[in-house]
């Protein structure tokens, strides 16, 4: 398993996460993640067809594919995972989550396809909504934004229904 032996209790972890968010705000940047996917996509498309990115899609103009605070924040997220893996848990990683394997079997391809589809819907939904868990819910909610509550309500409603349907009849 690829997990820390002891997870921090939710109130300690939550308080620390809140303090990191405060630090981000007082140093001038709300936390957020999903715009970076757009920049990454813009970078990749730019490599193949600069004309397509520069000319036809006004959306990439609003968020030009360049490095900024949030891109570095997301790179930091990956680095934190590397630190966790090599300095804290010291293991080889994990092919598929244990709970998923217990419910659906050990077929890696099936899990990877499901995660690919999940990742697609996560980011498509985020871009449509204008943010994800970090930007809309955590940053938004911390500024008392009503948008955060609407988004959270919708995401938990469909998330709970989907999870219940996926695990229906499976004793987990």
């Amino acid at each position: 398993m690829n997990e820390p032996k002891k997870e921090w209790p939710w109130h300690i972890g939550g308080a620390l996460l809140g303090l990191v968010v405060v630090f981000a705000f007082i140093t001038g940047h709300p936390v957020g993640t999903s715009t970076t996917y757009e920049r990454a996509a813009g970078h990749i498309l730019e490599f193949f067809s600069p004309e397509y990115v520069a000319g036809t899609i006004h959306y990439f103009k609003a968020a030009p594919p360049v490095a900024d605070w949030q891109v570095m924040f997301v790179i930091g997220l990956v680095i934190s995972g590397l630190i966790a893996r090599y300095l804290v848990v010291r293991n080889k990683g994990e092919d598929i989550p244990g709970m998923w394997a217990a419910g659906f079997g050990k077929n890696k391809t099936k899990r990877y396809l499901q995660t690919f589809a999940g990742g697609f819907l996560l980011v498509f939904g985020s871009r449509l909504a204008g943010g994800c868990t970090s930007g809309l819910f955590i940053s938004g909610g911390s500024q008392l934004a009503i948008a955060a509550l609407v988004f959270a309500g919708a995401m938990f409603a469909s998330g709970i229904i989907t999870a219940k349907l996926l695990y229906r009849g499976r004793d987990i």
Partner: peptide
């Protein structure tokens, strides 16, 4: 957007930020 996000949340078991942490952790999915 929230409704679409929620379906992806349940399928992946990650959100767009946590999947980046999981990537660093060496979780292949």
């Amino acid at each position: 957007g929230g409704l679409i996000f929620g379906v992806g949340f349940a399928l992946a078991g990650y959100c767009p930020g946590t999947v980046m942490v999981a990537l660093g952790e060496g979780k292949r999915d």
